[in-house]
Amino acid sequence: MTDRVANETALTEVMEFMASPPVKDTPEDARFGQRLLQVLAASIVDDPLDEDDPVCTAELTLDADLRARLEKASLERNHNAFGGYADGMGPTLGGGLNKE
């Protein structure tokens, strides 16, 4: 991974890459993917499980349209933190225990 930058800088770079996408499988494409994942991760808001949990706010605030465009770009370019599981892994307890 390249050096991590401030989230605001990463967002600026991502917007530049979105305006002029890099060629796939180049160092610039890899940097785009890293910055894209950083921006998406920084924009996640975790809801507290109960009233005693602290409220986690996003480090970056993205409107719904921009977030959807960034998620789409990430999936299109295969920059997915979950690999082949675009929607995440989900619960795995008991999964794959069949002997069939």
Rank of each mutant, 00 (worst) to 15 (best):
L11C: 06
L62Y: 11
L66A: 12
E76L: 11
V14C: 07
E51H: 13
L60S: 11
D47G: 03
R67K: 14
Y85N: 15
V14N: 05
V5P: 04
T9V: 14
G84T: 02
I44Y: 05
F82T: 10
L97D: 04
R35N: 13
K24N: 00
A81Q: 12
D3G: 14
S20H: 09
R4W: 09
K24L: 02
E8G: 07
L93R: 14
V5I: 15
E16M: 10
D3N: 15
G84K: 10
D53N: 11
L70W: 06
E71G: 08
L62P: 11
D52C: 03
E13I: 04
N80T: 01
L37F: 00
T61W: 06
V45K: 12
D63Y: 09
A41D: 10
E13Q: 14
D3C: 10
L93T: 11
L75A: 14
F82S: 13
R69K: 15
P22D: 07
E28L: 12
R69P: 05
T92D: 00
G90E: 03
F82A: 12
M1W: 04
T92K: 07
E13W: 04
M15C: 11
T57L: 13
A68S: 15
K24M: 05
A10P: 05
E16L: 13
V45Q: 09
P54A: 08
N78A: 15
M15W: 00
